[in-house]
Amino acid sequence: MPLTPSRTRTGFSVRVALVWLGLLGLFVIFVARFDLDLGIVREKLPGLLGFELNPDGALEGVPLTLLVSVAAMAVAWVLGLVAALGKLSGSAVAYGLATFYNSFFRGTPLLVQILLIYLGLPQLGPVPEAIPAGITALALCYGAYMSEIFRAAIVAVDAGQWEAGEALGMTRTSLLLRVILPQALKTSIPAVGAMFISMLKDSSLVSVMGSWEIMFLAQSYGRATYHYVEMLLTAAVIYWVLSIMLEALQAWLEHRVRYEH
């Protein structure tokens, strides 16, 4: 296959590791020029990693970031699937709803959406908590993007699959659930994984509502100690490590659902 040239020559992975190490080394040299105070990092790291609870006794740091991301991702996944089906639907109402939803939440900044929900909803009565508001905004926004992923994955399933199922007398719904979606969801895994990694970092936007996730802590520690760069770099490394873990999870999942068991 021309797109993936042969990697069987010995030492390929060793040489890749060397490239990574070299680039990491350059990064460390770059950062070392900042004259960082590593003591402050050591002191604040447990808080960022979430080994402590915040003063209200709630989660903070990494566990809170993960909670927000995983919850928002779960809701976004369902929203995305429903919106994708709406876009493929013959019903004008379903299509209209899905396309309006998609257009609005892909067409406006996530930060604005978060503030609209957090600051706008109270005008109508309900006063949302910061974390549920953040999860809602992230889920709505990412659901819109995921609807495009799912729509593309559903459309990409060979038309012969529909024909074969229809010829057997299967209903469209049964065909969709048992034949089309299992294949479409499998193809969508890499793109959904990329969305998840992206959301992990966009979850930092909920810090504007004062929820104590990684970015909020990094900024407030930085502000209090005048060690902004140390805290921001620490946050960056934490996000990076979490992303690498998610990438590994995605690779494992992709491998799991291959037909070649």
């Binding site: 074969a164 010829a167 057997l168 007398g169 299967m170 034949v179 037909y259």
Partner: peptide, 30 residues
């Protein structure tokens, strides 16, 4: 479609199901 079965040029088997599951699916759902 209960009376008429069809076989296609490109087989159109369901790739996520085994041979026996391919055959059993419509027996179950239809």
């Amino acid at each position: 479609r209960k009376r008429v079965g069809m076989v296609f040029q490109k087989f159109n088997l369901f790739p996520h199901l085994t041979a026996v599951q391919n055959v059993a699916l419509a027996l179950h759902t239809v």
